[in-house]
Write a protein that binds this DNA or RNA. Structure first.
Lengths: 338, 338
DNA sequence: TTGGGCTGATCAAACGGTTTCGGAATTTTG
DNA sequence: CAAAATTCCGAAACCGTTTGATCAGCCCAA
């Protein structure tokens, strides 16, 4: 006897001497099945290890329980770290997660056909993937609600959940000011990125309130090596600078390494701060003070939005901002205790 | 007119004035469809943005194109870093990736029902997830070939692909010896882990060849903080030690931070080496010499094994070892140039 | 004229579930 | 005891594909 694969509901029905409708209802907990037969069916199903075929059911019910998660090949560990978080959260919400990867130079458009073929319930797209209007429009045509993380669309369909980057940058900026820093350089990311833009806006707003402007803008492009190199070059000339406000933790770590290699002590000679809350930033080599993105809440909201019950009407796009939290460690001089 | 969702093959067939069988065959490139109608159908399909329903086809063909990737909630960034790699590789191989997450205290068994419901083509399970014999047996009963990464099973069904941990440890050990190190401590991981065991075996074999044994075993449990703490405590007493052989990069980084915080210079006073090839280990803060796991090849092989064409017969389990590569950086004293 | 071999398309039956509708058996009610 | 209500279950249609069987033409040989 060669048993192969998972048994079907039909098999269960034969074993139990009932129809497959009954099996289906029994497993669904439909009250129109007597407790006795329900028990019996469940018992048999458990014995033979029956699991209903998810594809068959989503075929007939016309609804899918799988969410797409679209990532890019990227260096930033922020999203890498939270992929298991989102897997857990979506499992808790009763969804499966399917991964789609677009190359660094590619566009969301590259994976839309695959997403459509699997009739996704919804999709979550992280900031590092390029999502053209055309791609978003196609998703909409295919009936796949998409949620952008730390990015905005203006097509009226796609929702977004973002860390309140501007507000976070403000609190960090104020913290630096209170710590007595006045000559602040910024280590910025890729231009055109919302994350970069809003964090800079927040910083500059606070600086302006104090009649300041940044003393330099170093372009780190969100890349570790680039950030290291550019701040090392900058520091080599011993510029008159108090603090470096890095737009991401990854770049902040690069900057700290640059300072270390230049023999500049952090935070005694120079404060360095970041933004994101990646794991290595907490290591003793860095002890980076930063503002942490509330990844858990962000992803939870994103999942909710991506899996919104289909109300027939076109659900309007939502944009939700969630505040980050200042995490004080040792890489920046602290305000005098008051 | 409210169009919702992706059009079906039936719609295409009506638009083209043919039967849906013809549509199916046309898209499949079946030669029994004339070039003229094939062109016409393809054109219409493209116009309305048709994508075949993957669930419907896998329902009838009885084969699925989705691979499971089972991860654990874990600290080790090694697998985090390569999740996008595996997403890319499986896309190249024509498969989709579905993510399953088991909690740190959980077992593969927790996700087997979900895996079965989606009738996975195969599954790849990384080392940090606990996979009980029962779980593996259930996978087999459900007809899901599973491939373990850096772990072994002995049930005759599940394949494994591993870095050749023992060999890697040997080359690292020889490198240390050639560098003049004689008093070597080991910073070990969780006991019972194959990775830990084989790397220790490799190290000890080479030490024995030179009439040596390790001067201490520090238990880091594969956890950064633990590794930091235990080596810091160890170093505090200024033991007579040449080098620390850490069983993972993550722990090596922790050890380097401990040395730094103890004012011990690396590599002048102490060499520290790791194993894995995680990103932060390459940062200037560490410049860790290590042996890199050949993640690309390992994952590629794993995908091949997990997606092996179903030959009807039970495909026998395979175990493949792939050699790692010594990556020399600055955290260990180098052998004198010969 | 009959028949055989192609070509190009259609029919219908699966695949494994869910759901609507209806029906038999049993119980409650008049 | 008949009628009505209730309980429990089965038959069949359907979801969107694939595929084996079939079939209508057409060309050509016998």
């Amino acid at each position: 006897m060669k048993r192969q694969g998972t048994p079907s509901a039909t098999l269960i029905s034969e074993l139990a001497g009932v129809s497959k409708s009954t099996v289906s209802r029994a497993l669904a907990g439909n009250p129109s099945i007597s407790e006795a037969t329900r028990k019996r069916i469940l018992k048999i199903a458990a014995e033979v290890g029956y699991e209903p075929n998810a594809m068959a059911s989503s075929l007939v019910t016309m609804k899918s329980g799988v969410l797409g998660f679209v990532i890019a090949s990227m260096e930033n560990p922020f999203y890498q770290e939270h992929i298991e978080r989102i897997a857990r959260l979506s499992a808790e919400a009763g969804h499966q997660l399917m991964l789609f990867q677009v190359s660094a130079t590619g566009d969301l458009l590259d994976v839309v056909p695959a997403m459509a073929r699997y009739r996704l319930r919804g999709a979550i797209v992280i900031a590092s993937v390029n999502s053209s209007d055309k791609a978003l429009e196609q998703c909409h045509r295919h009936g796949i609600p998409v949620v952008l993380i730390n990015r905005l669309a203006n097509d009226g369909h796609t929702s977004s959940v973002l860390c309140n980057n501007e507000a976070g940058a403000r609190v960090m900026a104020r913290y630096l000011i209170e710590g007595g820093h006045r000559r602040i350089a910024v280590l910025s990311g890729r231009e055109g990125s919302i994350v970069n833009r809003d964090r800079l806006i927040g910083l500059r707003a606070v600086l302006a309130e104090h009649g300041l402007t940044e003393v330099a803008e170093l372009k780190g492009e969100f890349i570790f090596d680039k950030a290291y190199q550019v701040t090392r070059d900058y520091l080599k000339a011993r510029p008159d600078v108090d603090a470096i406000f890095a737009v991401s933790d990854l770049m902040a770590c690069g900057a700290m390494d640059a300072a270390r290699d230049e023999g500049i002590r952090v935070p005694q000679d120079l404060s360095i701060v970041g933004f994101d809350g990646i794991r290595p930033a907490s290591w003793p080599a860095y002890r980076l003070t930063t503002v942490e993105q509330p990844a858990e809440e962000m992803l939870k909201r994103a999942i909710e939005l991506a899996a919104r019950p289909d109300t027939g009407d076109v659900p309007s796009a939502e944009v939700v901002y969630i505040n980050g939290r200042l995490k004080i460690r040792a890489s920046a001089r602290k305000p005098a205790a008051s």
